[in-house]
Computed example of a mutant assay.
Amino acid sequence: METQVHLHRGQRWNVDYAYITKNNKNAVKLFCNAHVGKVLFQNDFEAVGVEGVHFGKKFSVLAKRAVILSAGTIGSPMILMRSGIGPKTHLSNLKIPVLQNLPVGKNLQDHVTTGLDLIQLNQSLSIDFKNIASVSSFIQYMYQGKGPWSTTGCEAFGVIHSDLVDQRKELPDLQIMALPMGLTSDYGAHMRKAMGVKEEVWKEYFSPLRGSQVASIMPVLLHPKSRGEVKLKSQSIDDDPIIDPNYLAHEDDIKTLYEGIKIVKNLIKTEALQKLGAHLYEKKIPGCEDEKFDSPNYWLCYIKHLTLTSYHPVGTCKMGPQTDRTSVVDSNLRVHGTNKLFVVDASVMPSLPSGNVNAAVMMVAEKGADLVKEFWHQTVKKCNLWTFFQNIAMTNN
């Protein structure tokens, strides 16, 4: 299918822009340039606000009804752990008083992909460096919302089973992304830095492709068996987290991506791509020079050396019943063992969806808003009922 994205006149829309700016400007008051450090508790279990730093000065904000963390798969577990909610041993080592011993930061999952610039073409496409850098493309984008600048990057994708013979599996395990470009399409100006490619790999493997027409048909691992972890470096709000994604730790993840490479090779043989003169880029990736190109061992080596994130991390505040020792929040997104504290973001997902996470995260947000409102309505009812019985008791006295 064609890739679905949030676009308005060729421009990407952030979710906050679409929800807040366009729909209800007065619904939310934003406190910008603030970094939340931890949650404030009353009696060690009831969330009453947050504490943080704003331009170097400490601040605190008290909550009238509830505290909702939506800092994402990396940010939310960091705030919880600095607040004393997390793995007991880890927090104790950092001298953080433990309020709740929960597996915060565990169960980190991500979609990983490979295959950048793997396909060379004999024909030019509409999206290349010259077109993107041209003045006409800029004018077309600014005044019509069209042209190369309005591209989504990934033009099309599909979700499939890696086993092309047996399609009876419950879930697809691969997503195939089609990009009419690659890491070298901007001559190394931006993409290689954004993707974290090392300088020596860029020079030796990618730079020879500059100026040629490349494409990337990239297999994405949808349901990795590997699990990573987010930890704190210290108590300090200024320190970055320690993130161990643990990519490809499970051998099955490598095997599934290898099946994806084989599917890409089959796609290259199709009539549509052969009309463009599609063929594999045959230069060996650094680190795999001793393997025969296009052999199974070469591709397994290639995957280990050139696999990167799709930026879909989830799972570090896993949802599940309190009896599940691997979970952090319940089915109402409330943190176990606390009151009035919710986590509403991708970190609550127990596992990855079979595709991009954007729509799923918005679903969690929509449902989470309903759950928080319902929680508050039930709390008000209980308070009113308690007040009612108190009044009856006082009248009888």
Rank of each mutant, 00 (worst) to 15 (best):
L94E: 04
L94Q: 08
K95G: 13
K95Y: 13
K95L: 15
I96G: 03
P97F: 04
P97A: 09
V98S: 07
V98G: 01
V98L: 11
L99W: 08
Q100A: 11
N101H: 03
N101S: 11
L102Q: 00
L102D: 01
L102T: 01
L102N: 02
P103F: 00
P103C: 00
V104M: 03
V104K: 03
V104R: 05
G105H: 09
G105L: 12
G105I: 02
N107H: 11
L108T: 08
L108R: 10
L108I: 08
L108W: 10
Q109D: 00
Q109V: 03
Q109L: 00
H111Q: 07
H111D: 02
H111G: 06
V112A: 01
T113H: 09
T114D: 00
T114K: 02
G115N: 12
G115R: 06
G115E: 05
L116W: 02
D117W: 02
L118S: 02
L118P: 05
L118G: 04
L118C: 06
I119A: 07
I119R: 06
Q120A: 13
Q120P: 03
L121N: 00
N122M: 02
N122P: 02
Q123Y: 13
Q123M: 15
S124G: 15
S124K: 15
L125V: 09
L125G: 09
L125Q: 14
S126P: 13
S126Q: 15
S126Y: 15
I127W: 12
D128P: 01
D128R: 05
D128E: 11
F129R: 08
K130I: 11
K130N: 07
N131S: 14
I132L: 08
I132Q: 01
I132A: 03
I132N: 00
A133Y: 03
A133V: 11
A133H: 01
A133D: 00
A133I: 10
A133Q: 04
V135M: 15
S137G: 09
S137W: 14
F138Y: 07
F138E: 12
